[in-house]
Amino acid sequence: MLWHEHPKKKPLFLYIGIPMICLLLFLRLVLYFFKSDGFSGLSMLFPILLLCIVTFTLCSSAFFAAWVYQDCKKRREDPILWTAIVLIATPLIGLLIYFLRRPEPKKICPTCGHRISLKAKYCEECGKYVENKEDITTMSKPKTHHLKFIVTGTVSMVLILVCLAVFIVNAAAGNGINTDVTSDEKIWNLGTIQMNSNIYHNGIWKLDFKSASDGFIKEELFSIQAPKTQMLYADISCGTVPDDATLTLWLVQDETVQSFDVTALSKPLELPLNQFKNGQLYVRLEIHGVKDVTSKIFLQ
């Protein structure tokens, strides 16, 4: 029995699978929200835009895949295979692949069951005369089927481009992103850093990186418990220091801000914390051109 001879079944993966994926993405966003202190330092506009981009991408894939599914059934091809290809390869690439390999509509030879073109007058398998004027008339007046899937998929793609454009414009302008090194909130960097390792364990922060974008800020959150007796120790070594390159250590807590040039330390830095109070302390390294840096920072 051929696939098209089975009773019609609704593509449940479109009705169950896509909503489940969207739900998982939403839950991941919520978990990240709490883990990162509520996106401190980053406007909620950005995660919302990212969520919209992902959602509209899934919608676009689902609508185009639904159209491909119906088109394959009409052409008596395997709809599950081509639907999976469209979903996996993304809407644009998936549709391009499908249209490049899209077969012409076919009918079944009533004598031998071989699939032949709707325009064929004779079966290429058994040679019997199988002209069907109704099919030829249909082919002479092609009409786009399931147009609603095409329209909604296209609208979803337009919304993807709109959200992406808004995201890029705001990110390039720095709107809604906290890049103030003296801020008592989480810093978000638009640049990149090439790290070997970044470990924070038992109150010890070990950072080893090769290079970073100019002005990149790497930070860690420490906890002060006895500011009158505790000291901050920073053992930092810069392997490569080009002209005008600097590495600055920042200590930030509420309105209290201290900075130290640690580009060329001859010995580990020891800093008293008596100007601070019990609570969280942001320890930041502001990178300007230095490379091959190793650091070990802790409170004791």
Rank of each mutant, 00 (worst) to 15 (best):
K8L: 11
K8M: 09
K9C: 04
K10A: 09
K10V: 13
P11E: 06
L12E: 08
I16P: 06
I18L: 13
I21T: 11
I21P: 06
L24Q: 02
L24V: 08
L29S: 12
F33N: 03
F33G: 03
S36P: 01
D37G: 04
S40E: 15
S40T: 09
G41W: 04
G41N: 01
G41H: 07
F46I: 01
F46W: 04
L49V: 07
V54P: 00
V54C: 05
F56A: 07
L58R: 06
C59M: 15
S61K: 03
A65T: 06
A65K: 07
A66W: 14
W67T: 06
W67A: 10
V68Y: 12
K73E: 15
K74N: 15
R76I: 11
R76G: 06
E77M: 13
I80Y: 12
I88W: 12
T90G: 07
L92C: 10
I97E: 09
Y98R: 09
R101S: 11
R101C: 13
R102K: 15
K106H: 05
I108P: 03
T111Q: 13
C112H: 08
H114M: 07
R115H: 11
R115M: 12
R115P: 15
S117I: 05
Y122A: 09
C123S: 06
C123E: 09
E125C: 10
E125F: 10
K128G: 03
E131R: 13
N132V: 14
M139A: 14
H145W: 11
L147C: 00
T152M: 15
G153H: 10
V155H: 06
S156E: 11
I160N: 12
L161F: 15
V162W: 02
L164T: 12
L164V: 09
A171K: 10
A172Y: 08
A172L: 14
A173H: 08
N178W: 08
T179Q: 15
D180R: 00
D180W: 01
E185G: 05
I187G: 03
W188A: 04
N189G: 09
L190I: 09
T192G: 04
T192W: 14
N196K: 13
H201I: 04
N202E: 15
I204W: 01
I204D: 04
F209C: 02
F209T: 00
K210H: 12
K210L: 02
S213G: 14
G215C: 07
I217T: 14
E219Y: 12
E219N: 05
E219D: 14
L221R: 13
L221G: 04
F222N: 01
F222T: 00
S223K: 14
P227F: 06
K228G: 12
Q230F: 05
Q230T: 05
L232H: 01
L232S: 03
Y233I: 13
A234M: 12
A234K: 02
C238T: 15
C238D: 08
G239E: 05
V241G: 08
V241C: 05
L249N: 06
E255W: 10
D261K: 04
T263G: 02
S266C: 01
S266W: 03
P268I: 02
E270M: 07
L271G: 01
E286N: 03
I287C: 05
V290F: 02
I297K: 00
I297Y: 00
I297C: 00
I297H: 00
L299E: 06
Q300F: 04
Q300K: 08
